[in-house]
Amino acid sequence: MTTTTLDVREIPPQQRHPKIHAAFEDLDAGESLTIINDHDPKPLFYEMQAEIDAFDADNYELEQRDDNEFAATFPKQ
């Protein structure tokens, strides 16, 4: 499986979701997008689950690497 990584910690908060959605849209089926964030992206998970049919919520993964680093993997069906 091919994974694209996007570190959004330096992106202003109001620009993060549009960049993440654009990166996810560019993926092919079976690929995944891993975002590196400074907090648990739970709201983004719910947003994608509700709005994006190609998001494979069952295989979503979250790893907390330290207090200010979370790696969330969003697979595409």
Rank of each mutant, 00 (worst) to 15 (best):
T2I: 14
T2N: 12
T2E: 15
T5Y: 06
T5S: 05
L6Y: 08
V8S: 03
V8Y: 07
R9F: 05
R9M: 01
R9Q: 08
R9N: 09
E10N: 12
E10M: 03
E10Y: 10
I11H: 01
I11M: 07
P12F: 11
P12W: 10
P13L: 00
Q14I: 09
Q14R: 06
Q15G: 12
Q15E: 05
R16F: 01
H17E: 15
H17N: 15
P18I: 00
P18A: 05
K19R: 07
I20M: 05
I20N: 00
I20S: 06
I20H: 06
H21M: 14
H21W: 08
H21R: 11
A22Y: 00
E25W: 13
E25N: 10
D26H: 14
D26T: 05
D26F: 12
D26C: 15
L33P: 08
L33Y: 01
T34L: 05
I35H: 03
I35P: 01
I35Y: 02
I36M: 02
N37H: 06
N37R: 02
D38V: 11
H39P: 01
D40N: 14
P41I: 00
P43G: 00
P43H: 09
L44G: 12
L44E: 15
Y46W: 15
Y46E: 08
Y46I: 15
E47R: 10
E47C: 14
M48W: 05
M48Y: 07
Q49H: 08
Q49D: 11
Q49F: 11
A50T: 11
A50H: 12
A50C: 04
I52L: 10
D53K: 12
F55M: 01
D56C: 13
D56G: 01
D56F: 07
A57P: 02
A57F: 14
A57G: 06
D58N: 15
D58A: 11
D58L: 15
D58M: 13
N59R: 12
N59Y: 10
Y60P: 08
Y60Q: 13
E61G: 06
E63G: 14
E63K: 13
Q64H: 05
R65T: 05
R65F: 02
D66F: 04
D67T: 15
D67N: 13
N68G: 02
A71S: 13
A72K: 09
K76H: 07
